[in-house]
């Protein structure tokens, strides 16, 4: 966030976003953070076996989600994209069903948390296999282009570590060959579990690789949701117009351990992590919106309590829902009933 001004209602680059949209972005960031924390709490309480953490990714995800056209675009995310999923319409209740592994979860309690699948939202099913989703996104973008669907684009996301996978390179290459309507968004949090960026690539800028594929590469501050929106919106509009793919890199940071099963104290110092907290996008964006007169301090507090209430209500409701039945293990292997021996 560039603006450090104290002047209320001072002008700032808002990329056409209305006050309502700015507040919606902030609310998505709040819900994202609250639900990630809920995942960790439930894990520590012994109520769920596993949760991942997106703290530090709120701005890049909420900003990108605002550039997604609901009911039209396609999102092919990765496992750390809870904020993006929320930003395109996923509800806290669905998130809690996923965390608890309940039968009503999108995967029927089969998948790790935050692996959703909703045709209604345009949200593709993903595995946990790093970068495998990027070629699916390219295939979907090919279909959109083949059918000459106007004004529709695909957004696919991944971490910095994912950009080392061969499949990631194949996806960008093919998208460029066919000038597909797709945006590749890298959420560069500087870590891939315990491997720092320097162990992942010979130079630290993912966006620079775009040139090698023949597409624009855009660098954006991933802690600034407005800037992210601006960059992703421009790239999505370009894709929707038939202008081809773009690689956007949002630089952010992972404040917590990789997942509840990881302990980041084993590979990075508290000093490093604490020093980065000054960039925490959730309090920073709140302050920014208040300073610029978009939000009042009272409204902000109200919003926080309503988000907490919503999270609590979703937690109680989802926890009360049943697990899948043992017999559910056997459904949806193929269409129809199934035996390997006929």
């Amino acid at each position: 966030m560039a603006a450090k001004t104290k002047t209320a209602k001072a002008a700032f680059e808002r990329h056409g976003l209305t006050d309502e949209q700015l507040i919606a972005i902030w609310r998505t960031m709040l819900v994202h953070r609250r639900l990630e924390a809920r995942g960790f709490e439930l894990n520590r309480q012994g109520k769920i076996p596993f949760a991942s953490a997106g703290e530090g990714h709120e701005a890049v995800q909420a900003g990108a989600a605002m550039a997604f056209e609901r009911g039209k675009d396609i999102l092919v995310p990765y496992y750390r994209d809870l904020g993006l999923d929320l930003g395109i319409g996923l509800t806290p209740y669905e998130v809690l069903l996923s965390l608890f592994g309940r039968a009503a979860d999108h995967s029927g309690g089969r998948q790790f948390p935050h692996h959703y699948a909703s045709k209604q939202l345009g949200l593709y099913t993903i595995s946990s296999i790093i970068a495998a989703q990027t070629s699916h996104a390219v295939g979907a973008a090919y279909a959109v282009k083949l059918r000459k669907e106007q004004g529709r684009a695909v957004l696919t996301t991944f971490g910095d570590g994912a950009t080392s996978e061969g499949e990631w390179h194949e996806a960008l290459n093919f998208a460029s060959v066919h000038k597909l309507p797709i945006v590749f968004l890298c959420e560069n949090n500087e870590w891939a579990i315990s491997t720092p960026l320097s162990g992942q690539m010979g130079q630290p800028n993912v966006y620079k690789r775009a040139e090698g594929y023949g597409m624009p590469g855009v660098l954006v501050d991933g802690f600034d949701p407005i800037a992210v929106y601006g960059a992703v919106k421009q790239a999505m509009d370009r894709a929707r117009r038939g202008g081809g793919p773009t690689l956007v890199e949002g630089k952010c940071y992972r404040f917590l351990s990789h997942t509840t099963d990881d302990d980041d104290r084993t590979y990075r110092s508290r000093d490093e992590v604490n020093a980065r907290r000054k960039d925490d996008p959730v309090p920073n964006f709140e302050r920014f919106l208040i300073e610029h007169g978009v939000l009042t301090a009272e409204a902000a507090e109200q919003m926080k309590s309503s988000v907490l209430a919503e999270a609590n209500e979703a937690t109680d409701r989802a926890e009360a829902m049943p697990y899948p039945q043992p017999s559910d293990l056997y459904s949806q292997v193929y269409a129809g009933p199934w035996e390997p021996w006929q």
Binding site: I74, V76, Y124, T125, A132, T134, S135, H136, A137, V138, G139, A140, A141, Y142, A143, V144, L146, G166, E167, E170, A171, N173, F174
Partner: peptide, 16 residues
């Protein structure tokens, strides 16, 4: 080859 199949998976999910 990885993306020949991966892209086909995406196409199939998208209705081709």
């Amino acid at each position: 080859e990885a993306s020949i199949v991966g892209i086909a998976v995406g196409m199939a999910m998208e209705g081709l």
